[in-house]
Nucleic acid binder design. Structure first.
Length: 798
RNA sequence: GGGCUCGUAGCCUAGCGGUUAUGGCACGACCCUUACAAGGUCGGGGUCGUCGGUUCGAAUCCGACCGGGCCCACCA
């Protein structure tokens, strides 16, 4: 019998602790059961976990627990992504250091220090969310916690580089890259965001060679006139028809550039004449490739202009622009300056700095040759919800250059390569060992010239190059070959929609190139957590909800319940507020109270045998059967929302309010007037207990702690070892809706007559179908005379 | 510009071709009822964004428009 008035946070945490201490969800790699593997998203651990993390992990935990109930061996590891710029940036901020000004060793130390401090906090949050990971211990075994900065993970990243390089899928090239002048590193397209920043058109004057004619060209980047290689206008633009094929002279530099028509120029932008500069973005690079022109790069690694810019050499962009404007004005070459419509500027997502386009040698992974294959893969992976597939397809369509995989930063996996000082030939590391070429010497001879002196590569990999092998890592690729072979592909990749273009895409791409396989069967794409009115949560708006605080005040149960209720993938983003989570908590309180009631009744084995189900019992059991079936179908589709809403509505609106209320007197069986047989009394208790048992089992994946507690009290069994419930197959002809209506009619009549609920009802007419419930209805409402006819409920209270 | 998605009572939401449109919050009234007063019961409150179309019948299907949100791409 449950005596506690409420299920408290302390009781909840005690259960999580027990599971953690007993390693209740440990993974047995030798199990004969079907293995269900979850490629958990390794979250960046450099800050306390946010709502997105908490809800993603909670829902993954629903999936893991449900799959265990189905009799599967669930591989649900905790991974921690601990590479890359965000960690460096927080370390620089926290310890007030500039990594470009200290030694590389020192920088790495700061990163490790930061990670040590933050890991514990995040782990604690996951624990408090009630996540049942396969292990809470860091290690090399399948299912143990992995970190992407561990020597073993980094060794695997390096091994994949070596394999892909040897397959000819990775090459080094000197190309124009997205350069972040603040971080001093190349970044990928996926790391660029766009911000509206005010810009200005500078209308500058070009001369037409061999004539006295002048033309006016609008540009937002006057400091880059030196890189102008061509001027274009739209073929439809009659204003400039006469310039076709003419040669123009750039102002100040007096460089000869061709002028021609090209559809890339828009008539209504600027003056309609566009200066094509090789500073460009990807569109410009495409244009230059098409025109067969090799442009000049005028911006250096440090973000200042180089010798190509002549008198602007050594200046930063902003300074150079001002200087150029001044110079143009002096020479009378500036017509006017007008503000542009909000100009979308490419910004480095990691540092917030405007990126520049400069030429650097970097390694690239081929992806342009595999776009069709990627489209095919995108169609073959089961995506939940299916409409999220479009995000992936759109991204594949927009990929325009191979993936630059190297970065010039520090806290990341190093490129495992050295170069012969004599002939420059590359020497790759041996697979399986983590190497740091910037400090480890290469022990060997150059294959080409026999030289023994090597220069270690100083670059590191893009973090997505690490995290895109997480499914391979968790399945033991190269480390546990037998297990790996038996268990690829991974069953499920859960992740957020904002990283479809990075994590999902890069993983499918890289793992396909490595293994020739589609690396997971299902991908579950999470939406964003937004505020109550549907806007984004952001620090600047101050509308962030902290999951740590929510759990502290409302409890994990309420939080997880909210995740299920709100988590409809077919719809929009998930709306979140304290009120919504509180509402979810109230539903749990109802379940708790019903359970307290049911826990008052017990049945001996003999009583259980001597139990006779009455019509309303059959009705309750039949309703529960429907829930079992629906939950099974839907949970398999990763839909917890639909069945959980239905279950909880049933518990509150039908089971508690009507079934329990109606059979209460039979269960007590001490009514002075209406007597039930012992078998009928036992039937009520049996139904109460069995219905509740199933309901608890259905809700266990979502709310493991409370259901487990109640289950133990009522049935002295551990819910975590129970399989998915079977249907009991009971059928009933009782119309539940009519029962609800009849009860309401009685309650209303008593209220209208200002009677207590205990007071007798003189006469009632109930729908014919309720005749089998006569005795209970009489006892419940204290009805003196009841007739069953028609389908209406008519009550005369006095 | 492209993709996804949503407009149902003051706020949030279910329904997604078929009686009188579901539930919650808030509001009002009543009730200590052998689970639950941090509760229960009853009630008031709606031209289902707008305009057209399909249909015997539309919140539901189709089209156009208006408005919100999120993601992405692109530009001098």
């Amino acid at each position: 019998m449950i005596n506690e008035k409420r299920f408290t946070k302390e009781m909840e945490l005690a259960i999580y602790k027990e599971w953690k201490d007993s390693n209740a969800f440990g993974f047995n790699e030798h199990s004969k059961k079907t293995i269900y593997s979850i490629d958990t998203p390794p979250p960046y651990i450099n800050s306390p976990i946010h709502m997105g993390h908490a809800s993603t992990y909670a829902i993954m935990d629903f999936i893991a627990r449900f799959r265990r109930m189905l009799g599967e061996e669930v591989l649900f590891p905790l991974g921690l992504d601990q590479n890359g710029l965000p960690i460096e940036i927080s370390a620089e901020k926290k310890y007030k250091v500039d990594f470009t000004k200290i030694t590389r060793e020192k920088a790495l130390e700061y990163c490790r220090q930061l990670l040590n401090e933050t890991t514990a906090t995040s782990m604690d949050s996951f624990f408090k969310c009630g996540i049942g990971f396969a292990s809470w211990k860091e290690g090399e075994k399948i299912g143990e916690i992995y970190q992407t900065d561990s020597p073993s993970y980094r060794a695997l990243t390096q091994a994949t580089f070596i394999d892909l390089y040897n397959k000819g899928l990775i090459y080094e090239a000197n190309k124009v890259v997205n350069w972040d002048p603040k971080l001093q590193s190349t970044i990928a397209d996926a790391e660029i965001i766009y911000e509206d920043r005010p810009g200005f058109f500078h209308d500058i004057i070009f001369k037409v060679k061999g004539t006295a004619d002048k033309v006016i060209i609008g540009t937002t980047r006057p400091e880059l006139i030196c890189t102008c290689e061509m001027v274009i206008f739209n073929p439809e633009d009659k204003r400039y028809k006469h310039l076709e094929g003419k040669t123009l002279l750039t102002p100040i530099y007096n460089k000869e550039v061709k002028c021609k028509s090209h559809p890339a120029a828009l008539m209504d932008k600027g003056t309609g004449l566009e200066m094509m500069c090789s500073y460009g973005d990807l569109a410009d690079i495409r244009f230059f490739m098409e025109q067969g022109i090799k442009g000049k790069v005028a911006i250096g690694k440090d973000g200042t202009l180089n010798e190509h810019a002549g008198f602007l050499k050594g200046m930063k962009i902003k300074e150079a622009r001002e200087k150029m404007i001044e110079e143009l004005k002096t020479r009378g070459l500036l017509d006017k300056i007008t503000p542009t419509a909000a100009h979308r500027t490419p910004i480095s997502e990691r540092s917030g700095t405007a990126i520049e386009f400069i030429e650097m040698p970097e390694y690239y992974l081929k992806q342009m040759d595999y776009k069709d294959k990627m489209r095919e893969i995108a169609h073959k992976v089961n995506i939940f919800a299916p409409q999220s597939r479009q995000i992936l397809l759109d991204w594949i369509d927009s990929v325009s250059i191979d993936w630059p995989i190297t970065r010039r930063r520090y806290y990341a996996t190093e490129v495992p390569a050295w170069y012969c000082k004599k002939c420059g030939t590359i020497a790759l590391a041996e697979k399986g060992k983590y190497v740091q070429p910037w400090k480890d010497a290469y022990k060997g001879k150059c294959k080409k010239c026999g030289g023994t002196e090597f220069r270690g590569d100083e670059r590191v990999f893009d973090t997505w190059f690490d995290s895109s092998i997480s499914p391979l890592y968790i399945l033991g690729y190269e480390r546990h070959p037998e297990f790996y072979k038996k268990n690829i592909p991974c069953s499920l990749r859960p992740q957020g929609k904002e990283i479809v273009r990075t994590w999902l895409y890069y993983t499918l791409l890289k793992d396909y190139l490595l293994t020739g396989k589609i690396i997971f069967k299902d991908a579950w794409i999470h939406h964003h957590i937004v505020t109550d009115d549907g806007t984004k949560m952001s620090k600047s708006k101050g509308n962030i909800l902290d999951p740590q605080k929510i759990i502290e005040t409302l409890g994990t149960g309420a939080f997880r319940m909210w995740c299920a209720i709100e988590g409809n993938l077919d719809k929009d983003d998930f709306r979140c507020s304290m009120e919504r989570i509180e509402g979810a908590g109230k539903l749990l309180e109802k379940l708790w109270n019903v359970s307290k009631f049911v826990s008052m009744f017990e049945l001996t084995k003999e009583q259980e045998k001597n139990a006779e189900l009455m019509e309303i019992d059959k009705w309750a059991l039949a309703e529960v059967d429907k829930l079992v079936e629906e939950a099974h179908t839907r949970y398999l589709q990763y839909d917890f929302h639909t069945p959980v809403v239905r279950i909880i509505n049933f518990v509150r609106d039908e089971f508690a309010s009507h079934y329990v209320e109606t059979v209460k007197r039979r269960a007590y069986n001490n009514d002075p007037v209406v007597k039930f047989s012992e078998a009928e009394r036992n039937g009520a208790v049996k139904t109460l207990r069995e219905s509740l048992r199933t309901i608890l089992e259905l809700l266990y994946p979502v709310n493991p702690a409370m259901t487990s507690f109640i289950y133990k009290e009522l049935f002295t069994e551990e819910i975590i070892s129970k399989p998915w419930p079977k249907m009991n197959g009971v059928k009933s002809k009782l119309n539940g809706a009519e029962l609800v209506l009849f009860n309401s009619a009685v309650w209303k009549a008593k209220k209208d007559a200002v009677l207590s609920l205990k007071d007798p009802v003189k006469k009632a007419i109930a729908p014919k179908t309720l005749a089998p419930v006569e005795a209970e209805l009489k006892a419940m409402h204290n009805i003196q005379k009841v007739e069953f006819r028609g389908n209406e409920s008519i009550v005369e209270a006095k």
